[in-house]
Amino acid sequence: MNSAKIDQIINKHNADAGSLIQILLEIQSENNWLPREALTRVSETLDVPMSRIRHITTFYKTFSLVPKGRHEVHVCTGTACHVRGAERVLEAVEDVTGVKAGETDPDLNFSIETVGCIGCCALGPVVVVDGEYHGNITPTEIADVLKTCACKSE
């Protein structure tokens, strides 16, 4: 990610340190993750110590300090999904992709995340694959969805 783009995002927020989280969110959505150079740029331009940026980027779950996989899988583990078997769905996701929750495989195929609740509780268990929602899903069904993803990326 080039520094001109980063500066553009920072300037959109008037280089206001109070908008730090919004700026980081925008950099992440532009670049998919937060490279070290980007953080340094933000730290210098906003005059925010790197210590705070390190804390923020590890405190808030959305931020990623490593590149994300081509396919982003979010498994909802909210209570409604939990009582309807989200744990087994998550196991199936980890099984099929070989990636543990919170991790990305070295080939950058899959990033697996658990989400506290995505607010589609009536459809539990829910898995979001690349922005597409799969509701009332069974372990077998999600395995099939992800196998198709894996084929596409090969």
Binding site: A17, G18, I21, Q22, L25, Y60
Partner: peptide
Amino acid sequence: VHRGAGAFICGEETALLKSLEGMPG
């Protein structure tokens, strides 16, 4: 509009305010 960044604790009002100010919640 200020988007959160994935932290349950920011529903607590003082944590929410910290987050609005660009700090950890």
